[in-house]
């Protein structure tokens, strides 16, 4: 059930709702309330549509059909095909580190702050069902081996942010900022200030916030300081390498990246995490603005 809230701030409208298990915000530098409400409605509709369509927790969507196909070939719709195409390209670009079949590793890895590190034999058993190269994908026809699953959660939220920004832009040329749980995009520069002020929590310092002036483009953040395992003094981050099935050693706690779109920002931050201690080196190569904690 969506609950939309719309409030007038000093010089913009502030809309909020909850989707994708995250607080979602829409900041709109428009003058009239009716337009602000229209934009907020359209954006929340889109967020909920994408959540519904790509969530792996539902039983009434295409993802559920795909993940329960038991070896059968499934014909997917156009939008799903584009996201799978994109993920396929990302799999190649990351040389296998970004893999939408890696979600099943969660069955053995539960990042609850405990020392519950899985047995190598358990990891290897699950790893049988991981690997995009084992999937047959042609002409919108997807064939997974029985036991394999796909999870588009790694790109879904960023996709929702960019789509929402696109939709907002269809309503107005004024600046709109879409923020879904820390992944955000703007549609253009603000009239007066030129920028939106975006705060970023500094990991490990609960009250420290760095402020960033965002003129255009998008920011995405990967990582979660609270999701890890600690065993015998070794910290296991929740970032898993789909090729080994193991937690990536020395992964940063969080990475934030600024890019033209939220998807690009999100993919770069995810791939940086997967580089472990080379995250910073990787991001410098990409010539983007970023923060690492």
């Amino acid at each position: 059930m969506k609950e939309l809230q719309l409030n007038k701030e000093e010089n913009y409208w502030h809309g909020s709702f909850t989707a994708m298990a995250s607080p979602c915000e829409v900041l709109m530098e428009v003058d009239n309330e009716a337009l602000a409400r229209k934009i907020l409605n359209a954006v929340s509709d889109e967020a909920l549509r994408i959540e519904h369509k790509f969530s792996r927790y539902r039983e009434d969507n295409e993802i559920h059909v795909i993940n329960n196909a038991a070896g059968k070939t499934i014909q997917v719709d156009k939008e799903m095909a584009r996201l799978i195409d994109f993920s396929d390209e990302l799999y190649r670009l990351s040389e296998g580190l970004f893999d939408i079949t890696s979600g099943v590793l969660r069955k053995v890895w539960k990042f609850d702050g405990s020392d519950n590190v899985p047995e190598p034999s358990a990891v290897n058993a699950v790893l049988e069902n991981v690997g995009w190269h084992k999937v047959k994908w042609t002409n919108r026809q997807l064939t997974l081996q029985p036991g394999m699953e796909i999870d588009l959660g790694g790109v879904g939220k960023e996709y929702a942010v960019d789509r929402s920004a696109q939709i907002a832009k269809e309503f107005t040329d004024e600046s709109v900022l879409v923020n879904f749980g820390g992944d955000l995009a703007t549609t253009g520069e603000r009239r007066e200030h030129g920028h939106w002020s975006v705060g970023r929590l500094v990991t490990g310092k609960e009250n420290a916030v760095t402020l960033f002036q965002m003129r255009r483009g998008a920011i995405a953040t990967s990582g979660d300081a609270h999701r890890f395992l600690l065993k015998e003094g070794v910290r296991y981050s929740h970032v898993l390498n789909p090729k080994t099935g193991w937690s990536v050693p020395d992964a940063p706690h969080t990475v934030s990246v600024v890019a033209p779109t939220c998807i690009e920002a999100g993919m770069l931050s995810t791939m940086a995490m997967l580089q472990g201690d080379k995250a910073e080196e990787f991001l410098k190569l990409q010539e983007v603005e970023f923060w690492i904690d």
């Binding site: 584009r82 994109f86 670009l93 990351s94 040389e95 996709y159 998807i263 080379k278 990409q286």
Partner: peptide
């Protein structure tokens, strides 16, 4: 994975994804 600059290819892939969807 070799460290390399992928931001160009990534932005083209993103463009394809978002342009068509629009």
């Amino acid at each position: 994975m070799q460290l390399e600059k992928i931001s160009g290819k990534l932005s083209i892939a993103t463009c394809t994804l978002l342009q068509v969807s629009a």
